[in-house]
């Protein structure tokens, strides 16, 4: 058996064993149903939620937000808004860092420790300042994603500077606008995109975590409320939905990233 075949077998075997454990432990009564429902029940509940478009929960029926769409749209909206802001401002900031090396050197120690700070500690403060709702969630998502976009943009442009492309452009006598459009944009695109991809992951993590802590809507909110109301199947169904969504989005972004790198050669 080749290494690849062996590895694939091992991976699927592991996943199968995990699935089997999640199925068997609750069925055998070794884990209480308040802790874990069998895998088949969770998957069934997830299908039911997707097909009917509503969460079968007395709690969400009472609070008037039983539909899946209301939570998915809240989460997606917060992610997209914070992510768009981080991409626009972060990319511009990255270009600025790259254009002004002194600024990059001044900010370096601050950028190094930025992600060392437990940024979620700001969330309760944001709640007091802006109220419970979209604004604090979007703001925190923005703060969480912007620096990774900025740093990767500057690093990418800097890497292009060390390559041959700008020299070619200059020897062709390109103006500043043409240098940006025909040299830096295509040459730095894959590096910058790697930062954009990380930014998406970061803003998703932040939005879901904020919803999880204090919120009125969103998939993180569904997980939190289902946990507190002992609706175990709903909780795991929502967790699965979030994980599946992130994995699909991540796979799409990775494919796009690979294509950019390949086109560049």
């Amino acid at each position: 058996m080749t290494l690849r075949r062996k590895a694939l077998t091992l991976r699927w075997l592991t996943l199968l064993v995990l699935f089997g454990l999640v199925e068997a432990l609750p069925r055998a009564g070794l884990v209480r149903p308040a802790t874990l429902e069998p895998a088949s029940v969770i998957l069934g509940r997830l299908m039911e939620i997707i097909v009917t478009g509503s969460i079968p929960s007395p709690y969400f029926a009472r609070t008037g937000s039983p539909t899946l769409a209301s939570h998915v749209s809240a989460t997606l909206g917060s992610i997209l808004l914070s992510y768009a802001g981080a991409v626009v401002v972060g990319t511009a900031g990255g270009v600025l860092l790259w254009r002004v090396p002194l600024l990059a050197r001044i900010l370096q120690p601050y950028l190094v420790v930025y992600y060392a700070l437990p940024l979620f500690a700001l969330y309760p403060l944001f709640i007091l300042l802006f109220g419970v709702g979209f604004l604090p969630i979007v703001l925190l998502g923005f703060c969480f994603a912007i620096v990774v976009v900025m740093v990767n943009t500057a690093l990418g442009l800097r890497r292009v500077d060390e390559e041959v492309y700008p020299k070619v452009g200059r020897s062709l006598g390109l103006g500043p606008a043409q240098m940006y459009l025909s040299i830096y944009l295509p040459a730095a695109a894959p590096y910058v995109f790697s930062g954009w991809k990380l930014g998406f992951v970061y803003s998703t993590i932040s939005v879901v975590a904020s919803e999880f802590l204090i919120s009125v809507r969103g998939l993180g909110h569904v997980i939190d409320r289902s946990y507190r109301n002992f609706e175990t199947a709903n909780m795991y169904a929502a967790i699965l939905l979030v994980i599946a969504g992130v994995l699909v989005a991540n796979a799409m972004l990775t494919r796009l990233e690979r294509r950019l790198y390949r086109r560049r050669g």
């Binding site: 874990l36 993590i205 879901v208 997980i223 946990y227 967790i239 979030v242 994995l247």
Partner: peptide, 14 residues
Amino acid sequence: AVPKVTLFPLFLAS
């Protein structure tokens, strides 16, 4: 890459 907070209830349970 997954928002790991979503898995926190699992840790609470175990």
